[in-house]
Amino acid sequence: MKQLTMTAMGDSALLIQFGESIGEEVNAEVQAAASHLERHPFPGFLECIPSFTTLTLYYDLLMLERPKGIETVFEYVCSIVEELLRDAPNRPSPKRRVALIPVCYGGLHGPDLAYVAEVNGRSEEDVVRIHTGQDFLVYALGFAPGFPYLGGVPESIAAPRKSTPRLSIPAGSVGIAGTQTGIYPLQTPGGWQIIGRTPLALFLPDQDPPVLLESGQLIRFKAISAAEYNRIAGERE
């Protein structure tokens, strides 16, 4: 296990850094550490939140009795985490299957598909072919409940954010921002270029886990027709 950098984030949280830049290897270490800590919670452990290159750990300092000779609870938690992660696998447990996400591209569901095609000098069909042609890693969930940060969009279909964010983007909308792509789980304002929409629900508050996708997972988009979109959306009703 390599030397980890841990930084205090106030008196009740700390941040563990696994690498300097975004990459699948580093993210795999973050995810592995997150599940290891969850499986071995220490007294006072509240939760941990994985992101691209870091894991943030939240704890209740009043629950932690630091031994004599250790100055702060932060140092004590660092020593506990180091100890725990020493035995942690540096890869996540067996990858779940690649989740297939049906998307109806263009038209009303993807008003910015034409723009994304145009800025890249390609046809709309090309953009869809490239977007559906590879797996994407869910680096983290955040921004909104169940929102997957998916990196690794090829430069050939990358597109800048809208200069003025839309006030309302429907739930299920699939967007591109730079070389990131993502799916809006809830109707929210947003500045990403919207190229399509999935009929699947990403945030499922009544289920456990309450999300369709989890961080560390691979997904692949699949193009569907408007009729197919309506059929799947209809089944959800």
Binding site: M9, G10, S12, A13, L15, S21, I22, I49, S51, F52, T53, T54, L55, T56, Y58, A140, G142, Y149
Partner: peptide, 10 residues
């Protein structure tokens, strides 16, 4: 900056 965890009071 790469997005990372935040806390109440950040």
């Amino acid at each position: 900056y790469i997005s990372e965890g935040v806390a109440a009071g950040t």
